[in-house]
Amino acid sequence: MSIRLDHVTYTYSPGTAYEMHALKDVSLELPDGHFIGIIGHTGSGKSTLIQHLNGLMRPTSGHVYFNDEDIWGEKYDRRNLRFHVGLVFQYPEYQLFETDVITDVCFGPKNQGLSEEDRMKRAEEALRQVGVDESLFRKSPFELSGGQKRRVAIAGVLAMNPDVLVLDEPTAGLDPMGRDEILGTVAGLQKQRGITVVLVSHSMEDVAEYVDQLIVMNHGEKAFDAPPREVFSHYKELEKMGLAAPQMTYIMHALKERGLDVDVHATTIEEAEESILHALGRK
């Protein structure tokens, strides 16, 4: 169920004084079952990019393929595509609207035309997988805490059984433990369900820890597309784009400069710990 973008350009208000290229000739592939991160400063084209993944936006030029089919082809069923590629927007808890949690989660499956019984099964499974306790199923979504609401909103997309789950900054505004919980849950889902996860994030530490492929957007163009270790080795270029590497990258480079033989590619705390102990001969 891979998604492929082929020379995609998107221009806002073409031919007017406000013309702006939000995406410029972007080609990329999101392979099946991978955990993919997208980073870039505000206005770099991240959100425009993810809205192309399920056909919410139509490229000004270029093509988007899902499973090798052009999603803007003449007979392509884009409504169905949106059940396969689930998009969780920023602050998705603002989009909860039903009278209770479980009905809200059933909304997607209902639109898919599932029977009442199947909907409930899907909703219960999705809520369990994101860690929402059964005691909350019949509560109003507005009685829940911020972190719980966000889980319910993610469950609402999961209940459609998507092959690709796209999350736009799912941890914004959560406390540190809430951030770890949400990302841990998403990583677990990716493994259990074998789905592709696309994570838009501002946190270099988070992408370093979770993703296998990292796409960096800059002024509407794809600047890097590689495993995080490789991307972060270009930390000086990232800084020029208004980004940074994880704190670990800076620590490892500083140690190396002072003559300690550490792995400058270590990006997580565990990797850094290992490498420092090794370099000090404590392992």
Partner: peptide
Amino acid sequence: LRLDVPHVTQLAHAL
């Protein structure tokens, strides 16, 4: 308390 420390502090603690 569901909180965190800066990553450099965490690394120092682990070591």
